[in-house]
Design a binder for these strands. Structure first.
Lengths: 216, 216
DNA sequence: GAAAAGATTATTCGTTTGAATAAATTTGAG
DNA sequence: CTCAAATTTATTCAAACGAATAATCTTTTC
């Protein structure tokens, strides 16, 4: 029964990567994290039970205790996983293009951000779920993941989009909100307006709409 | 033990309004609904326990069963209460002014919507919390409260702001998102940017920012 | 002022939850 | 092949949950 891997003795066994055992361990762990990410995103931290996560991952609840210790730690692992995946894809998209027209360049970056928001509604769900209460999870989320990413985006907005320091929070949250909400409440949008926001052409229309909104 | 008032016999007792008893009943009920509104908004449906609500309302949990029956019914009562309050104030604000400059008229309406979003973050929280899962609560929320309000806003956007039918979902969710997110995640905004979005001057700045965004 | 009905509190019930522990199984090292 | 360690499953525990019921207190009616 190993609860904390950091306490493992530094034996020759530790560098046995790729063995059947450590492969299985990672696979199982990954399956749990994946299920946790889905559940936490869709139903929030409190709305998710560790048993449901285990079932969805096709395993036993005890494995969560074994691999992660607590529900809180599993939530952190799920967030880590999300941001790891996000980190690469988001910044691969932004600021890559160097079109002649600077404004069109900025617009395309915003379009990419909207496409990203459609692909990863979890990001927005997490932000809203945890951002409204000043607790320990929010602290961790900000210092570990949000601040570094915010700084990059802030740089981009200041230098490439030409916004002022004072405007920063307003641009950031207005853009994030305008880009993401429609995808975050997709079922509501479908039922309320009859339009499915996750259809390709609707995503593109929203991308263009928001891009032209912010860079007229 | 009265579980369902509609089943009460239609005696002369029913019109005893303003008596000490019925006054107390309404006061208690209102206190519970108020506490429920706060809790459901801040911690979501699943993150809220009926015991906590009762305690916060300064009463016993049994009273929730007595007055509302189930947690679900209490949630509906809380939502009713929120929308009742919102309904009046929101539409009092919109489309009231008739300035000479039509664009400035539209901008001021949007500013009012942003001020409203700062005052009632619950609206946004509810929308995101319930809008991401297609369940019975979402059905009820849409048919009972969202659709009528959406129709009014849609009219306003089509006729006053000059948007097209196709653009409607995009305008609606982009505006709602841009206007509300910064207030919905106020603790995060404070910690991440150092700016408190609920300060009067920040609200006004955001109002102006979003207004100029949408009506350039 | 007494009896009935209404409102409130206290207690209880069956489930579910997060977590811990025990038992069983699988794997790798010697 | 064997045995210890790692992993997985099964079981158990105390606490919290929504809900129901019982008991108590208050108000109204006659």
């Amino acid at each position: 029964m190993v609860r904390d891997q950091s306490k493992l003795k530094n034996t020759k066994r530790e560098n046995a990567k790729g063995t059947t055992r450590s492969k299985k361990r990672e696979e199982t762990s990954a399956r749990i994290v994946q299920a946790a990410r889905q559940s936490f995103a869709k139903r929030g931290f409190h709305g998710t039970s560790t048993r449901d996560i285990a079932t969805e991952a096709g395993t036993n609840q005890g494995l969560i205790t074994y691999h992660f210790g607590t529900k809180d730690a599993l939530w952190r692992a799920a967030a880590d996983n999300l941001f790891e995946e996000i980190g690469g894809r988001l910044f691969d998209r932004l600021a890559l293009r160097q079109l002649a027209d600077e404004r069109e360049n900025a617009r395309e970056s915003i379009r990419e951000f909207v496409r990203f928001s459609a692909e990863y509604p979890e990001f927005f769900w997490l932000m809203v779920d945890e951002g409204k209460n000043a607790d320990e999870r929010l602290d961790w989320l900000i210092t570990t993941h949000l601040r570094p990413r915010f700084n990059v985006l802030a740089d981009y907005m200041l230098n490439e989009l030409g916004y002022s320091q004072t405007d920063l929070p307003h641009v950031y949250y207005a853009l994030a909100g305008a880009a993401s909400l429609i995808f975050a409440v997709a079922p509501e949008c479908r039922q309320l307006t009859g339009v499915d926001p996750l259809k390709k052409e609707v995503i593109e229309r929203h991308a263009d709409f928001v891009a032209r909104l912010i860079v007229a």
